[in-house]
Write a protein that binds this DNA or RNA. Structure first.
Lengths: 344, 344
DNA sequence: GGAGCTATCTGAAACGTTTCAATTTACAAC
DNA sequence: GTTGTAAATTGAAACGTTTCAGATAGCTCC
């Protein structure tokens, strides 16, 4: 592997000049520049980024911790982050936490050792105390997506979960369905670990929608899931075994909604004729299911691009404020809610 | 950020000794070891991996180029690779090529600049000429998954695509369907860029199955897709607009199969009553669709673990042979093929 | 009390860059 | 020619580690 020294020797200049050439410094004479470039090409020289990083104290690398890479919600976000990062000369070190908070913490530390210049947390699987105690000591470019740590000196990109769930539930209520149930995300976990997961917001939105219609909240229309396919299936099965079954259900994410639909079909019931369903996330699969899934679309691409853009700005050292962005959701009406054809 | 020098000064030893302590060299006295560790903890010292990498000429980083991270086939493989890599002290730089061969090449070069110690190509989106001319010059730890570059000095992990496609097609033929079409992967691209994608093997398997039954091959039962949802939809639409429509179709990957089913349903036809479908990959979604998708299951987890294990062995410098592993596939019978309940 | 060990520790070079003060060169102006 | 100035180049230090030849100290043995 050729080094700058080789280039310098072979083209008869000093190492400093050779460095100036590859960095396109303006003060190198055209003659020298040309000669050095010839040698660079001849030796097929590529600068050693590690040495460069050591010197300039930047790794030009970003850490990305995804809470669950196999959840179809994330890959599209990862893609948009990776593309923009690459176009700005940054590469991505990926860690998948597999929804395990221990791995989240381990990855968090590991990424620092690897000298990443900044970090993006997709889904915020890093434990709150570790993250906050770290942030209180150091100032580090960091963006959190889809998790609210409730700390002001932190860039956060959220989606208006309360309003999204409100819209979904109201949509079902407006269609005249009654009763309308909810399959939520993990609720109890949230309290124990102080993990303000999106599930709480979505649950609140559901309750608010009932309230707005003057309908009393009733615990028996609530089942708790785990954001995974199986959890949705199980929760719906519980509903189906009740004496009175809900006429419609808002399911807190699409993966669970698909599981819930599976349960309904297995019981020989029809969607939406017997039970109407609205999901949340709008993962690609929502268009494939049968019936297709009415759901709350999150601006996935936007979530990713915004995250990396805010991070890049922060990386560029501009003295910028911490941002907390809340993006709107959008109701996507498909078949599972039983609405007449109408643009949502 | 504390450095080794700080540690050395504060604990009254030389930098060399301090280094020996964090690297757990045996010849440091217990007394010194203890004192240095105290300072390390007190200053919250963490070794600078960049400096370390520069010196030891290893980055402890692996490059991973995925041909399409949003294809549900890949995330599970990525997860198994990442987990094992992390447990062995390696982290992963992820590049997503978005099925774009240009990006594949760009990423390939970028990863070298980043001094990755080894590389895994998931789906082999790197152009053949670039890869092979590189390999002929240098010797570099590399594992390719699900693409056969047809070069012997290269670790390759494949699945028996020909046999898989043969099994799928034969399954349809045995059910008495006729004619049986195929939606293939990109075939023409393969010839132009000499890209021996899995699509060719699957196509061959289809042809072999016909031949085995003494059925002549007919071009009009072949449509070319792009391995994406939309491509499957479009290809099926072409079939549906033909004078005679195939009675069953083997679709070369599940994403396209789901697209194809969508097209069929949109035309008001039934699966499998009007058209039977068998896919390939067994992505998680294959169990969610309606009807559920009969498909060829690949050992995804195994593909990932094997890839990283071979790479790690190669990285450890053992003078090992190049390996070419071909894993078997498995027919998973669900509803879309219209077979009676039977274990596959 | 010196030789010979061993166990422990030191100091400096090296890894491949970037950076910058200092130097050299080129050239114009007189 | 000398001087002044700008342009081009050099050389060495630095980044934070690892490594290794050599130094030192403490023993044992005769």
């Amino acid at each position: 592997m050729a080094t700058l020294k080789d280039i310098a020797k072979k083209s008869g200049v000093s190492v400093g000049t050779a460095s100036a050439v590859i960095n396109n410094k303006s003060w190198v004479s055209d003659k020298t520049r040309k000669r050095v470039w010839e040698v660079i090409e001849q030796l097929n020289y590529r600068p050693n980024q590690t040495a460069r990083s050591l010197k300039i104290k930047k790794s030009e690398t970003i850490g990305l911790i995804v809470s669950d890479i196999t959840n179809p919600f994330f890959p599209e976000i990862v893609r948009s982050i990776e593309g923009i990062a690459r176009n700005h000369g940054y590469s991505l070190i990926l860690c998948d936490a597999n929804e395990d908070i221990e791995i989240g913490l381990e990855s968090f530390n590991l990424l620092f050792d690897k000298q990443v210049d900044g970090m993006i947390l997709l889904g915020g699987i890093v434990p709150q105390d570790a993250l906050l105690s770290f942030l209180k000591k150091k100032n580090f470019p960091l963006v959190v997506v889809e998790r609210d740590y409730g700390y002001s000196r932190l860039n956060t990109i959220l989606v208006d979960a309360v309003k999204g769930a409100f819209t979904a539930t109201t949509h079902l209520l407006n269609l005249g369905y009654w009763p309308v149930g909810i399959i939520s995300g993990p609720l109890s976990l949230d309290q124990e670990s102080n993990y303000l997961h999106g599930s709480v917001g979505r649950f609140e939105g559901y309750q608010a929608a009932l309230k707005a219609k003057g309908i009393p909240f009733d615990k028996s229309w609530v089942k708790e899931g785990d954001f995974r396919f199986e959890g949705g299936y199980r929760a719906m099965m519980q509903f189906l075994e009740q004496v009175t079954v809900p006429r419609a259900v808002f399911v807190s994410n699409d993966l669970m909604a698909i599981g819930a639909m599976e349960a309904i079909k297995n019981k020989g019931l029809r969607i939406p004729e017997d039970i109407a369903i609205v999901g949340y996330d709008d993962i690609p699969e929502a268009s494939y299911t049968s019936p297709t899934l009415t759901t709350i679309a999150l601006p996935k691409r936007k979530l990713g691009t915004l995250a990396i853009e805010i991070l890049l700005k922060s990386l560029s050292g501009q003295e910028n404020e911490y941002q907390k962005v809340v993006l709107p959701t959008k109701l996507v009406v498909r078949e599972s809610c039983g609405a007449q054809i109408q643009e949502g």
